[in-house]
Design a protein around this nucleic acid. Sequence first.
DNA 1: CTCCTATATATAGCAAGCTATATTTATTTA
DNA 2: TAAATAAATATAGCTTGCTATATATAGGAG
Lengths: 152, 152
Amino acid sequence: MQGMNFKKDTSAGYLANHMARLFASGLQRRIKPLGLSPGQFPALVALWAKEGRTQKELVELLDIEQATLANTLARMERDGLISRRASEEDGRVQQIFLTDRAKSLEEEAIGAALAQNAEALAGFSESERDQFLDYMRRAIAAMQSAETGSAE
Amino acid sequence: MQGMNFKKDTSAGYLANHMARLFASGLQRRIKPLGLSPGQFPALVALWAKEGRTQKELVELLDIEQATLANTLARMERDGLISRRASEEDGRVQQIFLTDRAKSLEEEAIGAALAQNAEALAGFSESERDQFLDYMRRAIAAMQSAETGSAE
DNA sequence: CTCCTATATATAGCAAGCTATATTTATTTA
DNA sequence: TAAATAAATATAGCTTGCTATATATAGGAG
């Protein structure tokens, strides 16, 4: 069977990958001047909302693996965005705090992310935008349940 | 201004990133038994359609950078999926050919990708699916034109 | 022919993902 | 209490993506 029917622009997976890369590079362009990178964004958002969280708490909040977060946090510490303080009750745990610099970037950084989202959805009506977000949430939920899922 | 309004599940960029990672890991789970990985997929699709393409031609076809493709092709060669033959007319150019193994995988691999797409869109009606793909194409187009774009 | 420029591919170096495993400290159990 | 298990974090090693730069070959201008 030669020439099976597979076109990249009709593949949801292909489009999702391409779209995500454009979101990331657009965000990067906007926040690089602030000394931030896209992968740090989710952790920053969680810490702007509440400091002193542990790595475990962040892993539960963000949809990434523990090892990925550990590396991201190491880069953030290196870049002067966070500091970590060992817990006294439990020697395995560290609480994570934002530096003054990281705190000072909240407004601009969130503005950049919102601007990037707006750029991507510029041609969308409000209801189209809502529907698009809903579709993405549904696709995510479907794949997550398949992940955990039962027999094939 | 403390506590700016930014929620990950209402951010198109966040959802796009998460969704793309789930597509990739789902596809990986399906094609790993074939000895393939998700990043090789676009190049394979292009070569299944027509062999003997050059790297430059593939870069024009796929939405990735030349350096990314160069590395992906190196891994594909290492893994016995492609071979390259230097052009006689132009010493800079190499034509890329599929190995027998890579050719033999076409049906199963495309089936895996289609199955992954189907899994993600399981709960969608046909018109919802079409609309979703269209939304993604529109977001991609908006970000691409902003990339090239005029003054801010 | 020689020098400049353009083109095709490769390499360096980094970020952000992942899986799998190691390490360290707590907790539980025998 | 000593040994086994669990929990929190780190590390190893890989892929896929990027930007920036190097290398090698072609082609054009003088």
